[in-house]
Design a protein around this nucleic acid. Structure first.
Length: 792
DNA sequence: AGCACGCCGACT
DNA sequence: GTCGGCGTGCTC
């Protein structure tokens, strides 16, 4: 916070002509004059402040890497998310363009100490990494530095390096080449061949390595050809090609249903009229949302505009990518986390240069340097992964709407199960509401059956698999069809549930599940701070089977192999997908039917499309219901609806089995019927009662410190202050300790404010950031999160 | 984040 | 009188 403002530097004469806002520079900073990377945020002819100005050391760019739009967006983001400006600027750029800082030790005198001499090992400059050195060594180095024997040198490395390749093109005219050909020696076969090649392929540009390989020329042949003036050779930028999607078959527009056509037309019209409108495209699974997206993008391209398509990280699978590449070919640029820094940088450059007009990517792709935007599409709009969980804590949806306004282009939010916030806005007419109610193949949604685990528990073959599910799996295996099993890992073992009656222990004040704290063996409410000891018996049915809840994919896998000894199982969870491309490989294996059962966590719920899958089983629907979060029902409903959509995508009928301890819960009941509308109505009622979004806005303030009392005290102090700035209508929840109260020996306390219209709040919060800087020295950290997604 | 400075206790 | 640890303030 102390450095969260611009610093003024003098521009040396040599940079004065071309230095512009949005460029990266290297400057000296601080007492030690270490070199750091900075961004030019403004230029002025005069300086009247009292500071002694330092000079810009170096300029890293020939052209601004941050456009005017990016600069404006960073300003807005800083305000909106209570983040540091520098973080907002950095989030706009690919990692590779963020400098890496290095320190080296440079020898300027003679070293006598043998230990230090060994460290230098005859070299005059070595890497300097204070953490890796013993304190005695550091002391010696410090002495040497004071005696001017060694010097610490700071480096700023720009890691953004483009790859270049040689290319060439005929320089002489066809006629000239033919005359040259006649003057050649009789036995100059190769040169003749080259000339023929140039004559037949006149006007074309070639990459040298392609030609030498395919036509048996050498690099030297081309070099001499260039010297003789037959061709010109030059370097062109080569982009690394991520996701080598093996030669996709180009696809063409499919015929739209009436509903699809209506939706497409509405957005197309907004594109034509350059309207910054937001659309909510609500379409049941299998209603052909993707084709609508594709045609909208097509339309934008036809208008000479570009398009930005956001997809949740988890569903950015080759299957999805292939669909876009098939329709738009090389115009597509892909941005997602599995890319290496180099690949990401190349894609970024392609977008910036205008070589790619369609950007497909996950959350951070919303900042892609795309120009002339015609439309922004956000698929699976309700996904919580669109919210970044660290600074700057932005929601891609908000950024999308900001950019929509800036570019005067529509924003399309698509989902089968929209977030309550979006759906409520659509209903109010803030968003334009487009609906796809029918499935493309005309098939009914798959049959969903609930298995009541309270009953099933007594005769189930294993802890996690009921008799019903086991029988159903057996049937499908006999038919040589495939099965997807999902283990809901959300809320893993953090709440208490009765195995007999399904009762989840809730807070008497908040109607939110209590969270189990192992350290104190107690239950705490993270909303109001209520605390009670862990009950010995269930308060509802007095059974002793009160457990905290949780299970792992490994255990289920073991159970499955016991039940079905010869079955081939693929496991997909964070453990098996950590390596690059693993995700893809597992899905590919399963698609080729190299396995009968795919067992995984949430990640299998999204966007997979396997025609041979006829059974989807959900092992534990309840875990996400028990989360101490007012969005628990919404998340559970969304997850179950989504995973149910995975069954019977093609010719074969599919069915879905959901194992649950709460078969009567409305989220599960409505998910069973795939009934979003009734779920929405019911959940809106619940939110209204509790005073939660979308009826109220929320802001979460978190304090953390080494000492628990420091964090708690600060939060109570903030609470005391904040009441003076709030009206009667606002509600303050907490302060309460967070469920994982201690992470890395830091204690976390939080406070949530629910409000509708509080003009003073914004000011208070901005001010809080400023004033909390003093305490930050003592290790106290304050984080403000607007519209938080996680309350845990 | 990272550096320097200054205060203070420990040690020569 | 000196060294080193640690808290505090500053960075154009």
């Amino acid at each position: 916070m102390q450095t969260n403002h611009p610093f003024t530097y003098q521009i040396p004469e040599k940079f004065q002509d071309f230095l512009r806002v949005g460029m990266r520079v290297v400057v000296e900073f601080g007492n030690g004059n270490r070199k750091i990377q900075g961004f030019v945020t403004g230029l002025t002819d005069e300086y009247s402040g009292e500071h002694q100005l330092k000079s810009v050391i170096d300029v890293l760019d020939l052209n601004p890497v941050l456009s005017d739009e990016a600069m404006a967006m960073a300003d807005w983001l800083t305000q909106r998310t209570f983040a540091f400006k520098i973080r907002c600027l950095q989030v706009m750029l690919p990692n590779a363009m963020r400098a890496s800082y290095r320190k080296t030790l440079k020898l300027t005198g003679k070293i006598k100490d043998p230990a230090l001499a060994a460290l230098f090992n005859e070299q005059s400059e070595i890497e300097f990494n204070p953490q890796k050195l013993a304190s005695t060594q550091l002391n010696q180095i410090e002495k040497l530095r004071k005696a001017n024997q060694v010097e610490i040198v700071y480096h700023v490395d720009d890691r953004a390096k483009s790859k270049f390749v040689w290319a060439f093109k005929a320089q002489m005219s066809v006629k000239e080449l033919q005359t040259v050909k006649k003057t050649l020696r009789k036995n100059a076969v190769k040169q003749k061949r080259l000339l023929d090649f140039l004559i037949t392929n006149h006007e074309q540009e070639f990459v040298q390595s392609d030609v030498t390989r395919e036509n048996n020329f050498t690099a030297n042949d081309l070099k001499t050809a260039a010297e003789k003036g037959w061709i010109t050779r030059y370097q062109i930028e080569k982009y690394r090609n991520p996701y080598q999607v093996d030669q996709v078959q180009p696809s063409t527009s499919k015929k739209l249903t009436a509903e699809q056509a209506h939706a497409t037309d509405a957005v197309d019209q907004a594109i034509n009229e350059a309207q910054a409108a937001t659309f909510l495209l609500e379409g049941v699974t299998g209603s052909g949302k993707t084709e609508v997206y594709l045609q909208i993008i097509q339309h934008a391209l036809a208008q000479g505009k570009s398009a930005l398509m956001l997809v949740p990280e988890i569903s950015l699978t080759p299957q999805i990518v292939r669909q876009f590449k098939a329709r738009f070919g090389d115009q597509v640029a892909l941005l997602h986390s599995a890319l290496s820094d180099g690949e990401r940088y190349d894609e970024w450059r392609r977008i910036e240069n205008g070589d790619a007009q369609v950007v497909v990517g996950a959350r951070s792709a919303i900042f892609a340097p795309i120009k002339n935007l015609g439309v922004i599409i956000m698929d699976e709009e309700h996904e919580t992964s669109y919210k970044q969980e660290d600074m700057p804590r932005y929601h891609a949806r908000d950024v999308a709407q900001w950019r929509g306004k800036y570019h005067h282009c529509p924003v399309v939010l698509g989902s089968a199960t929209p977030s309550l916030e979006s759906r409520a806005r659509a209903q109010k007419g803030v968003y334009q509401w487009l609906r796809l109610t029918k499935r493309i193949n005309g098939k009914a949604l798959p049959q969903v059956q609930l298995v009541d685990m309270r009953q099933a528990g007594r005769y189930a073959p294993t802890t996690d698999i009921s008799q019903e599910l086991a029988t159903e799996i057996q049937k499908k295996l006999a038919l040589n069809e495939q099965v997807v099993l999902m283990l809901n890992r959300r809320g893993y073992s953090s709440f208490l549930m009765c195995r007999e009656c399904g009762e989840v222990i809730k807070c008497p004040n908040c109607d939110i599940s209590l969270t189990y704290h192992k350290d104190t063996n107690s239950l705490k409410c993270h909303y109001c701070g209520h605390e009670e000891p862990v009950p010995q018996v269930c308060p509802n049915c007095h059974s002793k089977a009160v457990r905290y809840f949780g299970t792992g994919t490994q255990r289920v896998e073991k159970e499955l192999t016991e039940l079905f000894p010869n079955v081939r199982i693929l496991r997909m969870d964070v453990d098996t997908t950590r390596r690059k491309g693993a995700h893809e490989r597992i899905l590919d294996e399963f698609g080729k039917h190299h396995a009968d059962i795919l067992l995984g966590t949430q990640m299998i719920a999204k966007g997979l499309d396997f025609p041979n899958v006829t059974l989807v089983g959900v092992l534990n629907a309840d875990t996400s219901l028990g989360l101490p979060d007012f969005r628990a029902s919404e998340r559970t409903f969304q997850l179950l609806t989504q995973v149910s959509g995975r069954a019977g995508r093609a010719e074969k009928e599919g069915n879905v089995l959901i194992q649950t301890y709460n078969p009567d819960h409305y989220a599960i009941q409505y998910a069973r019927r795939q009934d979003y509308e009734h779920f929405f109505a019911k959940e809106m009622h619940v939110r209204h009662q509790g005073g939660y979004p979308p009826y109220y806005y929320t802001v979460q303030i978190t304090a953390s410190a080494r000492k628990e009392t420091d964090a708690a005290q600060k939060m109570f102090q903030i609470r005391g202050e904040i009441v003076n700035y709030l009206s009667q209508n606002a509600v303050i929840l907490g302060p309460t300790p967070q469920s994982i109260m201690r992470i890395n020996n830091r204690y976390y306390y939080q406070l949530v404010i629910k409000y509708k219209n509080e003009p003073q709040l914004e000011n208070y919060l901005q001010n809080l950031l400023l004033t909390s800087q003093k305490e930050e020295r003592n290790g106290l950290q304050i984080v403000i999160d607007r519209d938080p997604m996680n309350f845990i």
